[in-house]
């Protein structure tokens, strides 16, 4: 569908083919890394036996995600080699794969990217827990992190996206933005920005029609 939209010259905020990287986490990670976006140290594999090989090479804590039947099935933070091995032993069902990633401890910058504009809300990391988005507060980003957020969104084929970062590392890109949340937290009108973006991309001038 995205391919057909693009072929007909219709503007869309997600590009043809972007759904692959947006729906397959290892592909997204690899793609970001390939385009020099800073990501945490990440390992992807299918066989649980690989965990034993990795366990003494990782720094802890580490984030572990398991995937089955095309979707994320479980998510753990493990704080030691022993707990990583125990977690792997406990997985009994057939997996599509596992991701083990260096866990970056710090506040999460959750950025809404709308074209070249970025709005950031920060979720505090306290006592080992990341606060939920509804408790996040608006926070400014360095120009470098702002560029990173925009670059990450573009690499994944999005003009509008939510980019999650921590200490400058990109953790995830999603093609959706919770506009109401950001409007509330930032006082800005993100939907007006979206309208402006679409107008710019389509050459629409208000009052003059198409």
């Amino acid at each position: 569908m995205l391919d057909e939209i693009e072929r007909r010259g219709i503007y869309c905020q997600v590009k043809a083919g972007s759904h692959y990287a947006l729906s397959n986490e290892p592909l997204q990670t690899t793609t970001l890394n390939a385009y020099a976006v800073k990501i945490p140290r990440t390992f992807v594999f299918r066989s649980q036996g690989k965990v034993k090989i990795l366990a003494n090479k990782l720094s802890y804590p580490a984030l572990v995600k398991t995937f089955a039947k095309g979707e994320k099935s479980q998510r753990f933070i493990v704080d030691s080699q022993k707990s990583l091995l125990a977690m792997a032993e406990g997985v009994k069902h057939e997996l599509d794969g596992m991701i083990v990633r260096e866990f970056i401890e710090g506040d999460i910058d959750q950025c809404a990217v709308i074209g070249n504009k970025v709005y950031n809300i920060q979720r505090k990391f306290e006592k080992g827990v990341i606060q939920p988005a509804k408790k996040a507060k608006m926070s400014s980003l360095s120009s470098k992190d702002t560029e990173t957020a925009i670059h990450a969104a573009r690499i994944c084929g999005c003009d509008i996206a939510t980019v999650k970062m921590c200490k400058g590392y990109v953790l995830k890109v999603k093609p959706l933005v919770d506009f109401l949340l950001y409007n509330r937290k930032t006082g800005a009108d993100l939907l007006a920005d979206v309208t402006e973006l679409f107008a710019e991309k389509t050459g629409f001038v208000k009052g003059e029609g198409k």
């Binding site: 690899t30 890394n33 020099a36 990440t42």
Partner: peptide, 14 residues
């Protein structure tokens, strides 16, 4: 076999 491959992404390298 693909089941025995491990992808490593670190320090900008794959």
């Amino acid at each position: 076999p693909i089941n025995r491959v491990m992808i490593a992404e670190e320090k900008g390298e794959s």
